[in-house]
Design a protein around this nucleic acid. Structure first.
Lengths: 199, 199
DNA sequence: GATTATACTACACATAAGGATAGTATTTCG
DNA sequence: CGAAATACTATCCTTATGTGTAGTATAATC
């Protein structure tokens, strides 16, 4: 990305500051007024910032301005979908199965490749996973032996420990009250990356 | 704050969704178009949302709309200290005892009043807390019966369930292998707010 | 049963705001 | 040096946009 002039940096700072404060961007005229310059003067600066890739504009729309740089620094938070009931056959991340989104520190999960599940039941109790916990899952079609995975069992995502055996797959709960599930074909949604529990 | 009608909730969802996507709010006309209703129809809804305090408007300004509710979900990441060994007598958050910092979603803990501990040992196993887990603690000098607290025992912070009895305090592990600790005087560091475990 | 709130349509108006033209002065840079 | 970029002013045009009036229909409330 190209270098900004000091003036352009000032303009950009104003834009981001304004957005921060008002939650919507300023108009060209407001920007002009803030710097006591002409409208075209401000307009040129904004266009220059667009050309250099620091902001995005939409033609003929008021305040249709988005700061693209600066935004990346905000990537410390990832917003990932929280899945509810999963429609059979539908893509995992189909909007229908979204129960909302959760924000987690970005280094916990590459967003886009991750989603969250609310744990139901105590089948993983002995792995220290309790009902109500938030499970962060990284999307994967398969898993390694012994990993905890989210698998699609009867239209809902369930956490189980994954084992590939001779001709079958064993999905093992971590609770003696639950028998292992043996199956030839199971849909692995992803592997467990983190557990978050709130008190 | 007043109750929204389903239609108003739809409108509000659209507004927040639009802002999320474009980083600036929609115009009245765009809102109208999105719902295939007249401009005044959309305008009335927006005015109703303002009246009920869910959004703020500025007169005669395009897109000058701010969603005030929902804003709490706009949390970012808080960086809180991760405590290691705690020097006896020293203030809990003395820099000497820092073993680093960890990033957690800001709404999990007001930073400044919180810190993190790396769980050691399995004394809280039956509460689903495992060795290696990250415990988020909100600083507090005392606690309510039954709460899980971080207490200073022999120069290290330990998680235990807290009970105030007649003349003593009982710190109870959640693992039958560990006997409860009875004490007259214990330093409560804070109460457990969240558990984060990474795989 | 009257009144207020909701959920709209259709039309109209003033102005807010983007964008263009024309021009000036200074600075950067190959 | 000359071209291109920067940093502006002043004026104008067009469109985008908030807001108002008038009216309809239905549901909630008192």
């Amino acid at each position: 990305m190209k270098q900004l002039t000091t003036r352009q940096q000032e303009i950009l700072d104003f834009l981001t500051g304004y957005i921060e404060k008002n939650s919507y961007p300023p108009t060209v005229r407001e920007t002009a007024k803030a710097f006591s310059i002409s409208i075209k003067g401000a307009y040129d600066h904004i266009k220059a910032l667009e050309k250099k890739g620091f902001i995005k504009l939409q033609e003929n729309r008021s305040r249709a301005l988005e700061v693209v740089s600066r935004r990346e620094s905000d990537s410390s938070v990832a917003e990932i979908p929280l899945l509810g009931a999963i429609a059979a056959g539908a893509p995992i991340l189909a909007e229908e199965s979204w129960a909302g989104t959760v924000k987690i520190p970005a280094d916990y999960a590459r967003s886009g490749a991750c989603f969250a599940l609310r744990v139901q039941g105590d089948s993983m109790r002995d792995a220290g996973i309790r009902s109500g916990d938030l499970a962060i899952i990284e999307q994967r079609p398969t898993a390694e032996n012994g990993e905890i995975v989210a698998a699609l069992i009867e239209d809902s995502a369930t956490l189980k420990r994954f084992f590939r055996e001779n001709n079958r797959i064993r999905l093992q709960a971590e609770n003696p009250d639950y028998a292992p599930i043996f199956t030839q074909d199971v849909r692995i949604l992803g592997k467990l990356k983190a557990i978050i529990r709130r008190y």
